[in-house]
Design a protein around this nucleic acid. Structure first.
Lengths: 215, 215
DNA sequence: ACCTGAACACCGTTCAAGT
DNA sequence: ACCTGAACACCGTTCAAGT
């Protein structure tokens, strides 16, 4: 079974899914395909091209999922909300994807195509081109289903930073107050244990409602 | 002149400022300080600790700038807006900073402190802790003065992607329409040449106004 | 056309050894 | 206490050589 660009990209995605993006090395991909690392260079120009290809595979999956949502009832806001929350599902399946997308400087056709459809939804909802343009900027990566969290709790805050924070607590009256009230209302949650899905939807709706008002 | 953690961190920041984050290597820092790369390990645990330290230096500069804005007139919204746009100035001075902050998983005290002050402003403006918490999520990294742009024009889209896009143009009716209208109104701009400052402020105000309405 | 072996320049990091 | 030399395991990538 010969190598191909497609096989290389799929192997890379599989490695990223199971072991994280930093495990995606040429040697490792080669191993997964029972080939030498150098053989990959026949199907892929270099590592940057490899990453571009991974984005293409990801976005194909995303666009396919998102198109399945079409034809459902609702106005532009409901349609955009649905698409974006579907995109978010893909991101949750591939936790490495947001980080990868952020590092891409080249515009991938599939990414552009995704945004074209969003603009289409806004236009059919009565947006001017100008407002649709603002909207893309306001959404930023949220349009693709993710928002970068400054504190990543799942990565494990670590004893060291927790000790640092404990030492600092008296200098953080507002956060301490906030967190203790939230912990009181919902013992499950701290700043590190927020309901990410609920917060994502809150922010998304805040933006979509704000745009609605400017329409 | 002996090495010190501080000298190491400052050298690292200087390299990042002039040559980019990927040029910050142990060997390169050593060279800048006329020392061997291995000597750095006496003052810095490893590269992750080095990056944490760089964030600390950056955030010290940011918190200092932002505190200078205090005592100016205005309500919570004006105060937050001012702080966040000041933070943005720091990010523009250090283009590598957003990317670095996104990769940090540990909570740095200076970052937490910055957010504590934001919560304080919101509280004094009549926010419940719950809404202030939502607000932090809605702002995301925008609170620190940056938003990740999916398309980075300054990095140079590259001939290859431009050709790709030209081939794709007929599949992108909405984006093509949007861009041509924007180009008509403002011949300076394309999707790649947006007024980043204006778009940042639009999005920031959209969120702040939305929060105001929920208050 | 497709794959590989040998090699290069570069990483981060360890550790025993120097002063 | 502070710095270094030698070394290790790992990268991405090139290129001449194999089939």
């Amino acid at each position: 079974m010969p190598l191909s660009r497609d096989r290389v990209l799929r192997a890379a995605v599989a490695i990223a899914d199971s072991d994280g993006l930093e495990s995606v090395t040429m040697r490792r991909i080669g191993e997964a395909l029972s080939a030498e690392a150098m053989s990959l260079y026949y199907h892929v120009a270099n590592k940057n091209d490899l990453f571009d290809g991974i984005v293409d595979v990801l976005m194909a999956e995303l666009n396919e999922s998102v198109d399945r949502d079409d034809g459902q009832p609702g106005d532009w806001k409901a349609a955009m909300r649905r698409r974006i929350l579907t995109a978010r599902q893909i991101m949750l399946r591939h936790p490495w994807a947001p980080r990868l997308l952020e590092t891409r400087t080249t515009m991938r056709p599939a990414v552009v195509l995704y945004h074209d459809r969003l603009v289409g939804l806004m236009r059919s909802g009565g947006f001017s081109y100008d407002l649709a343009h603002h909207a893309l900027h306001a959404l930023g990566s949220r349009a693709l289903g993710f928002s970068q969290e400054l504190f990543d709790p799942s990565a494990g805050a670590g004893d060291q930073s927790e000790r640092m924070l404990a030492d600092l607590a008296d200098q953080l009256p507002n956060l301490v107050g906030m967190l203790s009230e939230i912990a009181h209302d919902d013992p499950e949650s701290t700043l590190g244990w927020c309901d990410d899905q609920a917060e994502f939807e809150f922010s998304l709706d805040l933006i979509l409602d704000g745009l609605d008002r400017l329409k």
